[in-house]
Amino acid sequence: MPAFTDIMSDAFDYFRAYALRALCKARAMPRGRIKHLQLVVGRIYNLLKKEAAYAPNTQQLQDFRAAQQLEAALDRRRDDGSAPERGFAAARPGAEREAR
């Protein structure tokens, strides 16, 4: 009788590796929108892993490519520093002076 690991599909293993890497990357990030989106990417990979455990299909590849594009966009945005993490923005000009 073959071991369980012998009958696992390659797609399952790849999606598992991507999910693990994405979630570890998110854990290392500071709080903010980028961290939240990185966690979402990890969850997408995890869902793809679960689907691949049953039967691989071509829709998974489309979802996988979309998740990779999102993750690449997050990496570019984080490396460029184009959107600094500032916390909450004032609701209207001068509102921050009222709170002091």
Rank of each mutant, 00 (worst) to 15 (best):
A53K: 01
R16N: 14
F88I: 10
P2M: 05
D13K: 13
F15C: 03
K35Y: 03
A89Y: 12
A72H: 06
A91K: 09
R43N: 14
P30W: 02
I34P: 02
C24R: 15
Q59E: 06
F4N: 09
A52M: 02
C24P: 07
D80C: 10
A22V: 06
Y14G: 00
R92I: 01
D6P: 09
L61K: 03
Y18Q: 11
Q60I: 01
Y45N: 06
Y18I: 01
C24E: 15
M29P: 02
A90I: 00
R65S: 00
M1A: 08
A53P: 00
F4W: 13
V40E: 15
A89E: 09
E85S: 10
D6S: 12
R86W: 04
D79A: 13
F88Y: 09
G42P: 00
I7S: 08
M8L: 13
D13C: 11
Q38I: 05
D79Y: 00
F15N: 05
D75F: 08
A83Q: 10
A11L: 05
I34C: 10
E51V: 04
A17H: 03
L74T: 07
T58Y: 02
Y45H: 08
A22C: 06
E98G: 07
N57A: 04
D6V: 07
Q68F: 00
P56Q: 08
E51G: 03
H36Q: 14
G87V: 00
A73N: 06
P56R: 04
A90M: 03
L74R: 12
A72Y: 01
R16S: 10
R31L: 08
Q38L: 02
R77G: 07
I34S: 14
R65A: 08
E98S: 14
E71A: 11
T5S: 12
A52Q: 02
S9H: 07
E71R: 12
M1V: 05
R92K: 11
E71K: 08
K50V: 00
S82L: 05
N46D: 13
G94S: 14
R78D: 15
Y54M: 04
A73D: 09
A53Q: 12
S9M: 02
T5M: 11
D75H: 07
Q38W: 07
D10H: 05
A72C: 03
R100P: 02
D10L: 08
N46K: 14
L20Q: 12
A3V: 05
M29W: 04
F12K: 09
F12P: 00
L37E: 15
Q68H: 07
F15R: 03
P93R: 13
I7R: 13
T58Q: 11
R43E: 12
I34H: 15
F64H: 04
V40Y: 15
I34N: 15
F64P: 01
L23Y: 06
S9Y: 06
D6I: 02
A66I: 00
R86T: 07
R21Y: 04
E98C: 11
Q38C: 07
A95W: 10
E71T: 05
L48T: 01
Q69T: 08
I34V: 15
R27H: 09
T58S: 11
F15Q: 06
K25Y: 08
A67H: 03
